[in-house]
């Protein structure tokens, strides 16, 4: 039984279909990338798994239980946590309060103090600035807070939506290194990215999403060598 199983889902914005019969699996402990260009449906897929949007057809199972009709809060309680595109921090709250809200769910609340120490160990900069208001941080720092907030929720499956978006190359390296550490600590990661090189290098497997359909899947190494991926996404 796969950890996360997406089966043949169709997703619409109003009347417009954006995801077509999409299926994918994530096994426990894996790092899986979903790569694709703008408008391929990557974010929509994550939003559907998180319960912010619902699929018209198909099914999503997590640890064997159907979640496609659950409320976002119930999906969070099951341990699926999304770090949304564009960070979406609580701009006028301090770093500390942002992280505290991350541990709002019942399953994360009890361990909040312990998890906070882990987050600070992973990203010491956040501790130095814990009382700073989120809006005053740089893009890279904001992304760190967003990831930290996600970890505070004690994810079994952490879904990251374009964590490298809009960051300088040196910061992108930092972010991917942090994701690597999170994965090494045993968290399953589903990574959506346009930075194909970095994300595939980090991943065990990958899916290529184009126009709402999976057009290719396989071990990350194999995708990196694939001629279509090379020309379309790596510019080689």
């Amino acid at each position: 039984m796969p950890f996360l199983e997406v089966k043949e889902i169709d997703v619409y914005y109003g009347d417009m279909q954006v995801i077509f019969g999409l299926s994918l699996n994530v096994e426990e402990g894996e790092v899986v990338s979903i790569i694709g260009g703008n408008g391929a449906g990557k974010s929509t897929l994550l939003r559907t798994i998180s319960g912010l949007m619902s699929s018209k057809r198909g099914e999503i199972l997590f640890e064997g239980a159907p979640i496609s009709r659950s409320e976002p809060a119930d999906i969070v309680e099951r341990g699926i946590i999304q770090v949304p595109e564009g960070r979406r921090l609580f701009t006028l709250m301090s770093i500390k309060d942002n992280l505290a809200v991350g541990a709002y769910s019942r399953r994360a609340e009890a361990d909040a103090e312990k998890t906070l120490k882990e987050v600070y160990a992973l990203m010491p900069r956040l501790q130095e600035r814990e009382n700073q208001v989120a809006i005053t941080l740089s893009g890279g720092e904001q992304q760190m807070v967003a990831i930290g907030r996600g970890i505070m929720a004690k994810p079994k499956l952490l879904m990251l939506d374009e964590p490298s978006l809009g960051l300088a190359p040196i910061l992108i390296k930092d972010i991917f290194e942090t994701v690597r550490k999170i994965a090494d600590q045993g968290t399953t990661v589903l990574l959506v990215e346009q930075d194909v090189m970095h994300s595939l290098r980090l991943s065990d497997r990958g899916y290529v999403l184009e126009h709402g359909r999976i057009v290719m899947e396989g071990p990350a190494k194999q995708l990196l060598e694939d001629p279509h991926v090379k020309t379309a996404y790596l510019g080689l």
Binding site: S50, L52, P72, A73, V76, E77, I81, Q82, P84, R88, L89, F90, T91, L92, M93, D97, V101, G102, Y104, S105, R106, A108, R149, A153
Partner: peptide, 15 residues
């Protein structure tokens, strides 16, 4: 406060 600032991000935190 989190809901007031970004209700969607808040719901992704289980609120």
């Amino acid at each position: 406060r989190a809901t007031s600032l970004d209700r969607e991000a808040a719901s992704l935190m289980g609120i």
